[in-house]
Design a protein around this nucleic acid. Sequence first.
DNA 1: TCTGGGGTCCTAGGACCC
DNA 2: TCTGGGGTCCTAGGACCC
Length: 362
Amino acid sequence: MSTGKGRIIAHIDLDAFFASVEERDNPYLKGLPVVIGSDPEGGFGRGVVSTANYKAREYGIHSALPIRKAWGFSEAARKEGKSACAFISPSMNRYSDASREIFNIVSKYTPTLMQTGIDEGSTDLSHLKTFKAARVHVENMKREIKRKTRLSCSVGIGPNRLVAKIASDFDKPNGLTVITPSKVDKFLRPLSIRDIPGIGPKAEEKLRRFKIKTVGDLQKLSWEELEKNFGKWGFSMYEKARGIDERELHEPVPRKSIGKHETFREDTYDLNFVLYELSKMARSITSSMNRKSFSGFRTVVLTVRFADFTTFTRSVTTSEVMKYTKELEAKAMKLVLPFFEGVQNPEKKAVRLVGLRIEKLI
DNA sequence: TCTGGGGTCCTAGGACCC
DNA sequence: TCTGGGGTCCTAGGACCC
């Protein structure tokens, strides 16, 4: 399908996916608020919420919320006589299985599927010629998904990937929103700028200083102004505010890096402990590398986050290809040492997180 | 009460080569 | 002695996404 006129793109987004799989597989969760995330440890855990079901969202719990806050909201609700949340650790294997099952069904309905995450993907339905036909097609697909997997999804249909994705988010859960080309502008204008993928907290904050809150507001800025303040990104924002997006669906891009990082249960000053954790990560990373059929790597990146959340990375690239856990461990050790000595850590801050990543995969 | 884990992409400066 | 671009690679940091 060439760029330009006449495309019909559908974006599929699975509803509260991890929580929905848990509810489906565990009947005792029926009707309860469900939170998937790290262990709340009775209000002292250090993680965040991965997914909250819609019942839990009524308590103010949402993705990326610190898990101890979620715990607090759950406790408050319980004291009002409502149900406490079920807190569940993610089981990625089961979610991957469910995801595969669903996108296998999606594949039957479309010649081109581009999966962009475990719970979302875009498809090209241009061959159906009309948005009306696309709607009927997607309704059938949604019904089959529901019948065969007992899971629901929300779908947006639009003239390009951007509009389809935004539309999929418009009416959740179990929604179907169709935006024909002539309706794009009317649809986008009242939305928050945060509904545009790529505009995160920082860009929102910056745009707020220009009194810009909605996509309609954003349309009032010339692309010169946007480029002056946001660089190359400005022009992309200019186009997104108008629903312009010529990106094609593409093949999955090959993986570029493999890494692990860990926030400790308590901040630490203990170099030996950190080295031990790094060596576990090194082992896990090389085994994951082998499983994914890479034979080596040339770059090692170490991340250190201190208790105050300041974060540093250090990396090395070698001309020879590295292959073994021992080599990765040695590099990690060399890179982390300065953070436990005076120069890189003069205030002797405690370490909250370390991470290790390999790049330039062979 | 702070703020996970697994990623990608972009920017910007410096080294180095032609 | 002084002054060029262009291209590529490396490093560090940061924004963003699911």
